[in-house]
Each structure stands twice: as C-alpha cells, then as structure tokens.
C-alpha cells in the first residue's frame, strides 16, 4: 500500500454509464486485479475503491461505472486536478498458473481489471480468450483494446444487440487453460457452475478502509473468514461459498 497524490490526466466517458480516468503517479504497485482507494473532494468521508484497468510507466488507468453519488462526483473531476489515493491494494490475480492459455470472463465494468491481466498474459506469450458480457451494445468498452493485444474476444449482450444474445456463459468456448472472472455476483456464479474447475474470481464488497483493518468487507469462505479488500479481492473458486 502506498499513499500518494495522483494528477488527473484525463477523465471521460467510454460507454453508457462507464468512465475512464487516467492518472499520473507511481504505478509500480498496481498489479492486475489490485485496486486503488480514491479520496474524493467534497462531502465524501470514505474513499472509493476502483480496480486497476491498466498501469503503464507512470500512468494509471481506472475504469469506473457511475452508480452512486461518489462515482457521479468522480465524473466531474477535470484534468490537472490532484486526487489523493491509496494504491497497490488487494492481492491481485495470480498469473503464474496460466501457461498454456487463459480464459477471461468479464461482466460489465468487471471487464476493466481483466485488461491489464490480458496484457500481462500476452506479454508472457500466453494465448488469451476474453469473453465480455454487457447488458446492451452501448455499454461495451475496450473490445478493440483487447483485440489489439492479440486476444480472442467474444461478446455477449443480454438484449442481443451485439454478439451472442445472453450471458457470458452463452458465449464461452470450452475452458482451456486458466480461468479468470470478474463481474456481478450472479454472473460469476453462472461461470462457476459452468466451469466448476478452479478459476480465480475477483469479488466486490462495500468497503470501509480498503486495507484490512475495519472488517467491513468480510466474507465467509471454505477456509474461514476473509477480508475482500486485503485477503482478496481475488479468490480461488473452490474457496468461495456459492450457496448451491
């Protein structure tokens, strides 16, 4: 964990309800699957946890969905403004298991952390398939960016406005190699049911501190209680209790 001032380089909409913020700062601890906690100006007391979408040299890219007052306030921040952040939070994805190939399954804004993962896997020469699911075509983001990495991309939309009509699981090829998943709980559960085997799942939970001391985001797992912020957000599929 590092506490630092980041300078906003850009902050713009990517797709319906999805924004991208690029920040200037030290990204040395921003590994795939990790997140940053942003201190927002104004009346917001708690920081906002946002997962890392990309980190290249001194540029940190965060992709976020506007869901509440905090993320709506984020959209009003402008280039040149400084924002205080805790970076390098969470355990991140384990890339060492992916050698022969990886399948990345993302749902909505959950596709964002899979981007840096895909880039790092491709740099290591690993074949990558990304199955990206959205509600509608106008919510799709980063399809071309994934393809530019040499990733095979499958798109699913709930309303059928693009790609396969249905859920991520409807567009998933056979799972060859390692599985990495990030998205809403029902989507991850569907992927788990389909895959059963191992896989790494990145969870989301309402957080207080983001670095493991307030116990606000605890979950029960097969191995006992875990803090999503500090022991996760990435957990092995077999460790999670799927209630099924």
């Amino acid at each position: 964990m590092k506490q630092q001032q980041l300078e906003i380089l850009s902050n713009e909409p990517l797709a319906a309800g999805i924004w991208r913020m690029v920040l200037l700062g030290d990204t040395s601890d921003s590994a795939p699957g990790r997140f940053a906690e942003l201190r927002l100006p104004g009346e917001f007391y708690l920081r906002r946890p946002i997962s890392v979408c990309d980190a290249r040299e001194d540029r940190l890219t965060l992709v976020y969905k506007t869901v509440g007052r905090g993320t709506r306030r984020m959209t009003e921040l402008v280039p040149g403004q400084e924002i205080e952040a805790l970076t390098g939070l969470g355990n991140g994805f384990d890339l060492s298991r992916a050698r022969d190939g990886a399948v990345l399954a993302g749902g909505g804004v959950g596709c964002a952390p899979l981007f840096l993962l895909a880039r790092r896997l491709r740099e290591a020469g690993c074949p990558v398939t990304a199955v990206l699911g959205f509600n509608r075509a106008d919510e799709i983001f980063y399809e071309e960016e994934f393809r530019a990495l040499g990733v095979r991309v499958e798109i699913a939309t709930l309303d059928g406005s693009r790609g396969t009509k249905g859920f991520v699981t409807d567009a998933m090829p056979g799972i060859a190699g390692s599985l990495y998943v990030c998205g809403p709980q029902p989507m991850m559960k569907a992927v788990w049911r389909r895959a059963r085997a191992a896989g790494q799942y990145s969870l989301e939970e309402r957080m207080g501190c983001g670095f493991g001391v307030c116990m606000g985001c605890s979950i029960q797992t097969a191995g006992g209680s875990r803090r999503v912020c500090a022991d996760g957000p990435v957990f092995a599929g077999e460790e999670l209790l799927w209630n099924d």
Binding site: Y45, C214, M215
Partner: peptide
Amino acid sequence: RFGNPTPRIAECTAGLLNAVGLQ
C-alpha cells in the same frame, strides 16, 4: 466471531456507520 452479514458499512456526511458485529 464472524460478525454480522454484509453490507456492514455505510457512509454518512463526515463519518460512517458500521455494523461489523465484533468480528
């Protein structure tokens, strides 16, 4: 103790609510 089910944290103006439940 595991404590209470989540969400256990809510934000307020100049503060927060917690219902961690002594984990």
